[in-house]
Structure formats: C-alpha cells, structure tokens
C-alpha cells in the first residue's frame, strides 16, 4: 500500500545541507502497525511526513495506493492528505477554544458532506474512542489520555486508510500514553493501517513491526517481542505475533 523507493531528503540549514534521509526503501502493507523507531534527529519524523504527503522528498518516489504522491500538484497533495491520511501529532494540536466534538469536526470541515451527517460521524467516532458523553468538553476539561483520544478521533473521522502518529505518547505520562497505544493497537486490530514514530522501545513494542532508523537510514526491521524490545534483532518481515504491549488496565471499548 505504501512504497518508498530510494527516498532521500536534504534540508538546507543556514546554507549547509543536512541529510535527513538517504536512499530509504520501505514497503508497508495494508493493515500493518509499523513503528518507526530511532533516536532524536534520526530522520523518523521526516519519513512520516513524507509518507503523509506533506513533505516532498529531495529524491525518490512515494507511492500510496498506486498514487505517486509527489507528482501531484500542491492542491492535489492536500486532497491526498484529506483522503488517505489521518495524523496524530506529538503535541496533539487540539484547538483549545473548540470542544472535543468541534475539534473532530475540523477534520471534516472541507468534506462535501451534509453537516448533520458530519456531526453524526463525529459523535460516532468519539464514542468509538471511548469519549461518549464528553463530546462538548474543551480540551482543558479532559485528561491527557482523553485529549489523545480526541486527537486519534480527529485523525480517524474522515475514514482515511492510513493513520500516522508522531510520538503519540511523547507528551503523556506512561499510563495515559499506554491508553493511546492500546487504542492504536485496537484500531489496527480492526484493519486500520498505522504508522507511528517513537523513540520509546516500550511504545514500539505495541507495534507489529518496528523499523529502526539511524542517521537517515533504515538499519533494522523487526517484529517486537516485549521482552526483546530493547535489543532488536534484524529480522525479515514475518508473521507478527499479536502481543499485549502493556499492562494498561483501561481498555478501549
């Protein structure tokens, strides 16, 4: 579903070129839950934005569902983002002056759907992530974990086939971070393709596949086992075992 062919990205930092990615080749199949893992500055977030159609690579091609994303015009790239990608940001990026429902509706603002249908869909997705009854709360009236769920709901509401998450647990305490990871895992269990960036081995352990990135290159592609999460071995993509990734008590309905 997602294919990266020889993707490189060079940033220009004050006149000096900084290589973020070099010759990355990666294929992610539909329904996978992939963690892009690596230390800070390794290029994993750049890779995520390139997959998400919002950061054109310096070289190489990105094919999603047969579409050569960066051959599209900027406006068509925006359409691609709307149709194919749901994004969960590290800072969650919920607008503080909008309720949970309105934050979710934001992702449907440009959809040519009747408003009543949009609202029904937003209610439905908020219920799906376990926020029934909290739709009209402002982000400040929600816990960190609940805010994370609103962010996930917003990423899902337009039924995009790919869910991209950038350090979704980065700003959350471990328990609430785990709740969000459980949610992503459950969604993946229901068939959603999830690509997540993390530098946290425990978060990566929730994925079914971990792609290790270092200095802009893929250095490993593993199937995590919680007990081996800190010492990855380079393995071919094989049948990933579904393992519970945490002891989080609160499961998503």
């Amino acid at each position: 579903m997602i294919e990266l062919h020889n993707v490189s990205k060079v940033y220009n930092s004050g006149g000096a070129p900084v290589v973020a990615l070099r010759n990355v080749n990666l294929t992610i199949a539909e329904g996978e839950f992939v963690a892009l893992m690596g230390p800070s500055g390794s290029g994993k977030s750049t890779l995520l934005t390139i997959i998400g159609g919002m950061n054109s690579p310096t070289a190489g091609r990105v094919i999603v569902d047969g579409i050569d994303v960066y051959s599209l015009s900027p406006e068509r790239q925006a359409d691609f983002r709307y149709e194919y990608v749901g994004f969960v940001f590290q800072q969650l990026q919920l607008l503080p002056y909008l309720t949970a429902l309105e934050n979710v509706l934001l992702a449907l603002a440009i959809a040519p759907t009747p408003r009543t249908e949009k609202i029904a869909r937003a209610y439905e997705i908020l219920a799906q992530v376990g926020l029934k009854g909290k739709e009209h709360r402002l982000p400040s009236q929600l816990s960190g974990g609940e805010q994370g769920r609103v962010a996930v709901a917003r990423a899902l509401v337009n039924r995009a086939p790919i869910l991209l998450a950038d350090e979704p647990t980065g700003n959350l305490d471990r328990a609430t971070g785990m709740q969000v990871l459980e949610l992503l895992r459950d969604l993946n269990g229901a068939g959603q393709t999830v690509v997540m960036v993390t530098h946290d081995p425990q978060a990566a352990a929730c994925a079914r596949r971990v792609v290790h990135i270092l200095d802009g290159q893929i250095v490993g592609d593993t199937v995590p086992a919680p007990e081996h999460a800190l010492a990855p071995a380079v393995l071919p993509i094989s049948q990933p075992a579904i393992e519970p990734c945490s002891n989080a008590t609160e499961r998503v309905q």
């Binding site: 900027p74 406006e75 925006a78 359409d79 709307y82 603002a109 440009i110 917003r154 337009n158």
Partner: peptide
Amino acid sequence: RQEIGLFRALGFRQRH
C-alpha cells in the same frame, strides 16, 4: 502558524 499548519495537514487546500 501551527494552527494553520494543522489545517494544511488535515488536507485543507491553500484556497481553503
């Protein structure tokens, strides 16, 4: 800028 970036990431076109 961040809010606008969010709109763009959500698929808002430039004209939106």
